[in-house]
Design a protein around this nucleic acid. Structure first.
Lengths: 135, 135
DNA sequence: GTCCGTGCAAAGGATTTGCATAATC
DNA sequence: GATTATGCAAATCCTTTGCACGGAC
């Protein structure tokens, strides 16, 4: 399927990894939790353990294939890292996720880090609300 | 000490609650984790259980006395809610926390929510970096 | 006295780890 | 064949819950 992605990252090619990659690429909103991935693999009749999911996703994050996003309810989701940077707007009712980018916000974040003499390494901006459908 | 804060919130006054409030008020950077609070109570020779800490802090959040902030490393801290809204800049080396406010960022967040037809209920903006001292 | 708060221990959920087996290169 | 990945179960971390007791009002 996408052996290249894995080879490029210097990872061994296993079916579990390929399938997880595939799920990430095909999932509707491109955001999956470890459990979501686990259920998908089970559906595909793959005899997989949840530990493998976590290990694969951690490895993917390590080599830059995915980003991990932590939400306030202690849930984490993973998304492919091949898109440009963006932040998230989450519906707390239905879980729908919108991605957005805002140059001004990005710029101000840099300015703030500079102002406080911090070397910025990452940031997390999540907006929580209720989407149109749920209102 | 500050019975008023509790009475105003309609909470019964107990020693545990008063001491936790006190710790929140006196702590250096005004941010404490549940475990920090627990250790402080133990130091004061109070025979407290960690469950109480969580229950007290949850109650405090419920009535608006504190805000809970979730960091990406799955750590949560609590801060008094009596200050005006602000976001956080965290040093990933030493754990130091700076608070900042940025009107433009706030404004853009509202605009984004509006654009996507979301009713914004909360947001979390955390900047991670390395502070001057740790560099 | 009623109700709420607490301590303790046990349960819970998400994630990680140890170890032997299995697969990739 | 050496090394890395996997499955399983057990362990871990943080947080929550059930229950009986104690304290606040």
């Amino acid at each position: 399927m996408n052996d290249k992605d894995l080879k490029r990252a210097g990872l061994k090619i296993t079916e579990q990894r390929l399938v997880i990659l595939d799920i990430l690429k095909k999932s509707k909103n491109h955001h999956i939790s470890a459990e979501d991935a686990y259920k998908e693999l089970i559906k595909k009749d793959l005899d997989v353990g949840i530990a493998t999911i976590y290990r694969v996703l951690a490895k993917f994050e390590e080599v830059g294939i995915v980003n991990k996003i932590n939400f306030d309810n202690n849930m984490s989701v993973f998304e492919l890292a091949n898109t440009e940077h963006h932040d998230h707007l989450i519906c707390t009712e239905c879980g729908n996720i919108e991605e957005f980018t805002d140059e001004i916000i990005e710029q101000h974040q840099s300015d703030i880090a500079k102002k406080y003499n911090y070397k910025l390494t990452s940031h997390s901006l999540n907006l929580y609300g209720i989407c149109k459908n749920c209102l």
